[in-house]
C-alpha cells in the first residue's frame, strides 16, 4: 500500500492555478522531495496532502485514509513541520516540546529523548525566541516527530539557514526514514534534494514536471558530459580532434571538452597521460530544470 496517494489535485486562488493537476504516489519508508522555485505550489500541495486545505478537485489518501475533512484518526500518525516556526510564544525549548507531547498524549520522557536526538540538550532552558535559526528548525522537527509518526511532512526545513547550518541539518534529516518512516519534504535547494531524497518531484507553476530518483532524472536529461583538462597540456584544436569529443573550448581553468561518450574520451586522455587534474561534470538537477522549463533555475 502506498503511504501517500495523490490523484489529480487542483487548487485555484482566483485566476491562479496554484496546484494544477498534481498526482503522486509515495511508498512506505520512502524519502521524497518536492523541488521547485518559490511560488511553484510546493507548500500548497503539501498542505493539501496534510489535510489542511481542501482541494478544488482531486483526492488525497494518506495511509489508506481520506485526509479531508479533518480526519482525527489520522492525525496521531502524521507529523508536520510548517514553514513558519509554529511555536508557543516565550516558552523554552523543553516547555515547547512537552506541550506538543501532551497534545499527542505522549509521555514527556519521549520528548526529552527527541531534544537529545536533535542536539538541543544544552538549549532546553532557552526560550524559542532566543534560539538560532538552525536550533529553531531542529526543535520544530523534534516537535513534529515527538509522537513517532508514520509519515512526516517538512516544509522547507532548511530555508533561511546558512550553508553550514543547512548541512548540519542534513545529517539529522537523512536518518528520519531509517525506521521505515515515510518522509516528504519541500525544498528549493537542488543539492539538498539530490543528497537527501530517494525520489524527487520537480515542480513548477503548480505542476509536477517529473518524479524520479535524482540519478534517473539526470540520466534522462541526455545532456553532454563536460571534461576539463588542466591548462597547458592540450590545445583546443588538438582536443577537437580527439575521438568522441564533440566540441572543445578554452576556459580559465583549462580546456573543456564536451562529449556524449565520456568513457571513451577519458580512456584516450589516460593513454596520453593527461588525467592529472582532470574534472568530469555530468548533468545536475539544475540542468534538468532548465531542460524541463526552458529557463534557468532560480530558487
Amino acid at each position: 500500500m502506498a503511504a501517500i496517494s495523490v490523484h489529480d489535485v487542483v487548487k485555484t486562488y482566483g485566476s491562479l492555478r496554484a496546484v494544477d493537476g498534481v498526482s503522486l504516489e509515495v511508498g512506505e519508508g520512502e524519502f521524497v522531495g518536492i523541488l521547485g522555485p518559490n511560488g511553484a505550489g510546493k507548500t500548497t500541495t503539501l498542505e493539501i496532502i496534510e489535510g489542511l486545505r481542501r482541494p478544488d478537485s482531486g483526492s488525497v489518501e494518506l495511509l489508506g485514509e481520506k485526509v479531508w475533512p479533518r480526519n482525527a484518526g489520522l492525525l496521531p500518525r502524521i507529523g508536520v513541520q510548517l514553514q513558519a516556526s509554529s511555536f508557543f510564544e516565550r516558552l523554552t525549548a523543553r516547555e515547547q516540546i512537552h506541550t506538543f507531547a501532551s497534545l499527542y498524549s505522549v509521555p514527556t520522557a519521549a520528548a526529552d529523548d527527541w531534544l537529545e536526538r536533535v542536539g538541543l540538550v544544552d538549549k532546553v532552558d532557552t526560550r524559542v525566541e532566543d534560539l538560532s535559526g538552525g536550533q529553531a528548525q531542529r526543535l520544530s522537527i523534534a516537535c513534529a516527530l515527538v509522537h513517532d509518526p508514520d509519515v512526516v511532512f517538512l516544509d522547507e526545513p532548511t530555508a533561511a539557514l546558512d550553508p553550514q547550518a543547512r548541512r548540519n541539518l542534513w545529517d539529522l534529516l537523512a536518518g528520519l526514514n531509517d525506521s521505515g518512516r515515510t518522509v516528504v519534504l519541500t525544498t528549493h535547494y537542488m543539492d539538498e534534494a539530490e543528497v537527501l531524497c530517494d525520489r524527487v518531484a520537480i515542480m513548477d507553476a503548480g505542476r509536477i514536471l517529473q518524479f524520479d530518483t535524482p540519478a534517473a532524472l539526470v540520466r534522462g536529461l541526455d545532456s553532454p558530459t563536460r571534461i576539463t583538462v588542466a591548462p597547458g597540456q592540450l590545445d583546443v584544436a588538438d582536443a577537437r580532434g580527439l575521438a568522441g569529443v564533440s566540441d572543445a573550448d578554452e576556459a580559465p581553468d583549462g580546456v573543456v571538452l564536451t562529449t556524449r561518450e565520456p568513457a571513451r574520451v577519458v580512456a584516450t586522455l589516460a593513454e596520453r597521460d593527461l588525467l592529472d587534474g582532470v574534472r568530469v561534470q555530468t548533468g545536475t538537477l539544475e540542468d534538468v530544470f532548465l531542460s524541463l522549463t526552458g529557463r534557468e533555475y532560480r530558487a
Binding site: 508557543f88 516565550r90 516558552l91 516547555e95 506541550t99 501532551s102 514527556t108 520522557a109
Partner: peptide, 24 residues
C-alpha cells in the same frame, strides 16, 4: 513530572499562562 503525561487542555493552558506572564 518529566516522565508524566499532561492532558492537552492543561498543557495548552499552561503554555498560554507562561506566555502571558513572561510578556512584561
Amino acid at each position: 513530572m518529566s516522565a508524566g503525561r499532561t492532558s492537552p487542555f492543561v498543557a495548552l493552558s499552561r503554555a498560554i499562562v507562561l506566555g502571558f506572564l513572561r510578556d512584561k
